[in-house]
Design a protein around this nucleic acid. Structure first.
Lengths: 189, 189, 189, 189
DNA sequence: GATGAATGAGTATTCATTCAT
DNA sequence: GATGAATGAATACTCATTCAT
């Protein structure tokens, strides 16, 4: 995604708005106030509010940093911790991240989200396979189920952290969770 | 919750609206149109839109049917399958169910949701303890983590099913998932 | 004015509403709540909100008690003190009393108020004449002006008392005012 | 008060609306119709209806022209005649002017009105003192009472004129009234 | 006498968007 | 690039009134 300076500024402001006041308060007016320009000015940089949200979503996905060169469980762990780190750096994101519901009535957004998820999944699936090959994960569990078993808990943990306004140490709990997952998903013997 | 006929009709319509068009389109106007009365008429039955949403949430929670007399893992399994059955019967609910984000800027709703979640959690925690006592679940995993490990995947599965518009057999996959969970969380003898 | 019990109850409640929350909150709904009946029930006793207000105005006028048998200045003084006493007994009335403006867009009300004023004025004019005849009031001031000179200050005093939420002793100040008026309007020797 | 052209246009229209149809019909809809724009357009110039009313009140107060350099009775007379002149030029104002009651349930407006009244009163009190010093007004009447005695009749006269739709020569009667006041309040030498 | 349900017109206010400048 | 002004449609909600029961 190539965004101009102004576009970046706008998406940043949008993110903050969502974070601080929820999606419902992401209005062009609030956005323009936050940046210090007129509402009309926004439309020089994005042709609609939708476009801003789309840019936002892309940005969110790109933001997750993980080491794609890793292999197997290490990669999966890196991905999960990457998400957690991102959330810790920018807690606002936790409101946007797993909020597919919010965009449900915007077919385009929905498609985007699905595609992103699938892309990830494709990417991640290989790592699951590797982990099975390397004897890190049980082989008697289908990939889809493995995905649920690993990322379901991770997502729920992040969500709980967001809902409780950061009431516990997400990083710590996240690492513990991953360790536990590694343990229980390890092939017996 | 005791609702009059009209109140039921209204909450039903609200549910459908959310299901079909998302929360953002749950407006009094749309609601009244859906029922075939004036907007003003709604206010004879609920004093505000908030009240409607609250009623809706309560209804959703009450809708989950599970056998509370069961013990340990059987109870947990019953709860999870109860949710899945409900979703299968009324897929619209999947949009309301895990949508804490949607109500994030409505403190009261948020509180309600949290309370409901906590209540469940309290209720469920006892079953987790029982399951540990009865040797169904490993004792070396803290309760909170166990909760994440079990209900994280369940939630994700339901969510995936909703996002993919029911593209797989949720019941089947749910039961498989629960079996897998039982297996991997079973104490290594 | 002959009002049924219920009608009296309604006008009483209306008066209290105006007193406590201003004319703008005199709605049929508030009225019915105050009495403890349905909105529809009100319409059994008055055919419209206007009619209630009209009844209210009449009631207010009838409420002023003064000794109509007195003559001259004594009568005028009695009338003024009667108003003041009434206001003291039922301070709510101060909001309704001199509020011709409130009803300005209701031609009928306006007419009523004018008529009432004129009636009073006719009645009072005779007392002014008597007072002049009896040498209590200067004869070189036209009646209309005398009326203004006496009742202008009385009204303003009551108004000030209402606006300041009864911050001074209205009765005391009223009597002083009337004494002063008597003094300055007394024929010079 | 610095108002833009549009803001002036809006307050003007508001004034006319109040004059012609009473405060109760001062609605954003009516206002926008009167000007020939959308309701939404009003909000580019005032952020709320309240703000419009506040501007209106300020405008009214600023509109009274009188010679503040005068001393004693001359100043008081100038102030009273200033009000009368204003009312004659813009009879609509008579509906706004003495309408404290209308704003009774708007605490902010009430405060404004009180402040304005007090400010005037403070200003005017000095003139009353001067008038007493200069031997124009009796010294045996307290200031507050003097204020009532002078401005009570003036207000009542203006009110009568308004209620009777300008049925008499307000200026003429006003000057007569002031002359009479001067006479009866003159210290008995 | 009173209720419950409803209506149609109205309330202030907000929204995303457009356009001439 | 940006502004100021405007729009049309929408928002939740209130009002006086009606009517069948």
């Amino acid at each position: 995604m190539d965004l101009t300076e102004r576009q970046k500024e706008i998406t940043e402001a949008a993110l903050n708005l969502i974070a601080e006041q929820g999606i419902q308060n992401l209005t062009i007016r609030n956005l323009s106030k936050a940046i210090g320009v007129t509402e009309a000015a926004i439309y020089r940089h994005f042709s609609s509010k939708q476009e801003i949200i789309h840019a936002l979503l892309l940005l969110c996905e790109e933001a997750v940093e993980w080491d794609e060169n890793l292999r197997g469980w290490a990669a999966l762990r890196s991905f999960a911790l990457g998400r957690i780190s991102l959330i810790l750096q920018r807690p606002e994101l936790s409101r946007v991240f797993f909020s597919e519901e919010i965009f449900q009535n915007d077919e385009e957004c929905r498609a985007m989200l699905q595609e992103m998820t699938l892309q990830h999944k494709g990417c991640l699936k290989d790592r699951f396979l590797e982990a099975q090959e390397d004897g890190e994960l049980r082989r008697d569990i289908p990939l889809d189920t493995l995905f649920c078993l690993v990322f379901g808990p991770v997502r729920l943990l992040i969500k709980q952290w967001g809902l409780r306004n950061g009431a516990f140490d997400l990083k710590q709990r996240g690492m513990e969770l991953l360790d536990t997952l590694k343990m229980i998903l390890h092939p017996a013997e």
